[in-house]
Design a protein around this nucleic acid. Structure first.
Lengths: 203, 203
DNA sequence: CTTTGTCTTGACCATCCGGTAAAATCGACG
DNA sequence: CGTCGATTTTACCGGATGGTCAAGACAAAG
């Protein structure tokens, strides 16, 4: 079943994964029920379990599909580019993801909150290696005087935190700002560019 | 039962709330079981249910106890103080809370991820009012030329996001940095002070 | 010591939920 | 069309979980 062998299998597995993403991200792993996922995917529970053996397997599949997209913006950070522009572009890409794929962000957040039981190996493997590589890039920029000398790891954390906040804490942001359509993403992006590049102290 | 009338009631309700905080923050609302909370509180499930009528009531109690502490650091932002020092101090207080009360932060995050079903009224009420008030303070600082002219709402969001990240995404931070004792909080605080005050662009 | 209300417990129940079995239906291909 | 594997459904099971109940243990006041 791992490699879909028919058209119907490919379609249904994709539909299930999409439905599962919505339900898991909104309710957490334990809060999500197989019935709820099946209903959202437009099929019966036993039918769903024909495609995935267990609830756990669905969850893992969703996490796996997530990961590549998740790491893509950081991968795109280009040593050869202009440092200031690269960082601004990274912020923009991440804010766009928070706006366009909030469920993905929330699912990831849920997994982190629980201690990443299904991702700890990836975090300590691929993710860690990627961050180390990009930290080196940032340090090189610092050393060349292109940006200030700051801890590259905590810089990356700050970029993740500020941008994902607009997805993970969306209720709070909307409650505080009042309903603003999608203006918060635009304003947030503008603010973050300003914050990260120039800080608050008047020049 | 709402107002504890005996010593034992006060003690046990407090023990239950503490245990519930740990369990809810680690497992989410649905993932937490009354049995698990009771065990952690060192009592039987029916005994626990003698003090709180339902699991939901326990959860609401924990959320309520949380809120005052949660808003305290922002409340402490003092218009009369030096703006740069006030913001740096706010960052420090929030980082300390992430280090010393990570369960509180995670519980809050869990609630936000689910759409804040039990807090939406507070978010749109007290929290919103408090943020509006402090936003005015920040805007006054900007107008006086004490800090740059930035959107005060998004500034507050950025402070929340970056500091709480060290509690909510602790697994990820530790996975990326390797185990560092508690150095990450110190380094993170130093980085954030630098970021918020001066930004990345070289001066 | 005894009484009275507080606290605690063991046994139990109903529901929800993940998962299974087997029969029924569908659909691609000869 | 007819066949056979792929897909879907109906009915069901067992364990977990939130919550109840009635009786017993305990503590404080007299």
């Amino acid at each position: 079943m791992n490699a879909p062998r028919t058209r119907i299998q490919a379609e249904n597995r994709a539909r299930i994964a999409a439905a599962a993403l919505d339900v898991f991200s909104a309710e957490g792993f334990r809060g999500a029920t197989v019935d709820a996922i099946a209903e959202r995917a437009g099929m019966s529970k036993p039918n769903l379990l024909y495609y995935f053996p267990t609830k756990d397997a669905i969850y893992r599949e969703v996490l796996e599909r997530l990961l590549d997209d998740w790491l893509a913006p950081l991968r795109a950070l280009d040593e050869a580019g202009d440092p200031v522009q690269e960082i601004a572009a990274y912020l923009d890409r991440k804010i766009e993801m928070a706006r366009d794929f909030p469920a993905e962000s929330r699912l990831f957040a849920n997994e982190m909150l629980r201690g990443a039981p299904n991702m700890i190996d990836v975090l300590e493997g691929d993710l860690r290696a990627l961050v180390r590589e990009k930290a080196k890039v940032i340090r090189a920029w610092s050393a060349a005087g292109k940006i200030a000398k700051v801890d590259p790891y905590h810089l990356i954390f700050a970029i993740w935190a500020t941008t994902q906040h607009y997805a993970d804490y969306d209720v709070q942001v909307r409650a505080v700002l009042g309903d603003d359509g999608e203006g918060r993403f635009h304003d947030g992006a503008a603010f973050l560019r300003r914050l990260f590049l120039d800080g608050l102290r008047p020049r």
